[in-house]
Design a protein around this nucleic acid. Structure first.
Lengths: 243, 243
DNA sequence: CGTAATGTTGAGATCAGTCAATCATGGTGG
DNA sequence: CCACCATGATTGACTGATCTCAACATTACG
């Protein structure tokens, strides 16, 4: 629960793929920010570090005072339904934005899965700031559209795939982040619990375990321990059959 | 399939609820656009009318040349999976944006459900245009974040609710649009088929029918005909138990 | 070293998907 | 005007994935 503002050495980056075709040879996973823009943004941002896994960063229903940019670590957002069920809306990796508000109120709770460092931008200043930094604002627009696509992609997964496929796709998504995945040996170190995965994929922790067992039976991965998986990404991709 | 560029009398409006708290007494469902902004946007936009229900407006995988703003009618976007299944990602109502591209390629197909009129903005011009119209660009950012929230909301529905609840929520969503719903008598005229609803809710047409029957049994609505429903919105809201 | 949290496995119940048949509707051409 | 047909909608029977409950195993941590 302890948060502490610190000086940071993190690179301020926004992870996004844009709408327009990239220039030849260029495939950007990160928005290009000029040094000046980076400096401007840094001046507006406060840096906060959440050291304890599980720390709440912001709560659903609270006044939405900041938009957050994740610098380091892993963050999840969720809503709690009236029957007590939890739906995780997204996991956020470094370079992702979170902290969506609707009419001044956060629509989901955000928590650190691992220790996490964030930039936070006061919503109040953001409008004016972006309006006076159009090319930077365009970057935010690209990012918002990127996140919109991510959510739609997850809708496809939830709407049409069984638990095993959803899990396969999720593991592949995780393996895109070097922080937790080593490309050479295919080793994925899961930072989240079975319950987290289940609440993200719209299923139960038991079903996640069973789906893992099934993928292992079919030779798509090997469970070294509960949180350590050796993936065969090619086979997983063929199995998932989904971009 | 026939599209025709026409002069239009439609109001150019962008439907969105923003992040910041609204000014007192104000609850905007539509972004405030100045007359000048409206004129600027109109100058950039081409107006196209799709008269035949089912007309394709843009296709998944095609070069993404335009961003679309729906002026009138109803539009659906979907992706087709490798096994032939269809997942509808969203229905778009007047004032909504669609036509998301990723690296220059549309990620979903868009089709007119009813006759529809759209503004289309060349992506190529949009970046420069928005960069030189910062306050308008802010409107687009707000809208993109609005759509992002909509997609996340649907994720909750898909992840945690059974078919009957999903349907109840869907009907309530439809009833927010006066075009198809009459508030006084609670009459909803569905513009889409059972298959459309099923592919949106991640279920089958048969299950949609059964869920409708169940909601009718429980007195939450009455089926006047397949496409004509008399809703008891209060009961539906209580049943759905979800904002 | 003990306790709580996390993960795994099993058995039974249930929701919803599939297949198939039937009914309804609206548009078309004779 | 009406018969016909294609599409959409409904209903029934069956099946299967997965949810739930329960027991047990493992891990992490104080």
């Amino acid at each position: 629960m302890k948060a502490k503002a610190i000086k940071s050495q993190h690179d301020l980056k926004i992870r996004a793929v844009g709408s327009l075709p990239p220039a030849p040879g260029q495939r950007r996973a990160v928005l290009p920010l000029s040094g000046a823009e980076r400096a401007e943004l840094s001046r507006l941002a406060e840096i906060v570090e959440y050291r304890t896994p599980g720390s709440q960063i912001l709560g659903e229903g609270e006044p939405g005072r900041f938009l957050f940019l994740l610098a380091d670590g892993l963050v999840r957002t969720h809503v709690t339904l009236n029957d007590g069920e939890r739906q995780i809306l997204a996991f956020y990796w470094p370079g992702d934005l979170f902290g969506l508000a609707e009419e001044g109120t956060y629509v989901a709770t955000a928590e650190a899965v691992t220790p996490a460092t964030v930039y936070r931008f006061p919503y109040h200043d953001l409008q004016q700031f972006l309006t006076t930094n159009p090319s930077l604002q365009y970057g935010f627009l690209v990012k918002a559209m990127h996140e919109w696509r991510s959510a739609q992609r997850q809708l496809i997964v939830m709407g049409r795939f069984d638990v095993a496929k959803r899990l396969a796709i999720f593991l592949l998504d995780c393996s895109a982040h070097e922080q937790f995945f080593s490309g050479e040996d295919g080793l994925l170190t899961l930072p989240m619990t079975r319950y987290d995965i289940a609440d993200y994929l719209g299923t139960s922790a038991e079903s996640v375990t069973r789906a893992l067992a099934r993928l292992e039976d079919e030779g798509l991965l090997k469970r070294l321990s509960a949180r350590q998986l050796r993936l065969d990404r090619e086979k997983l991709r063929a199995y998932a059959d989904f971009t």
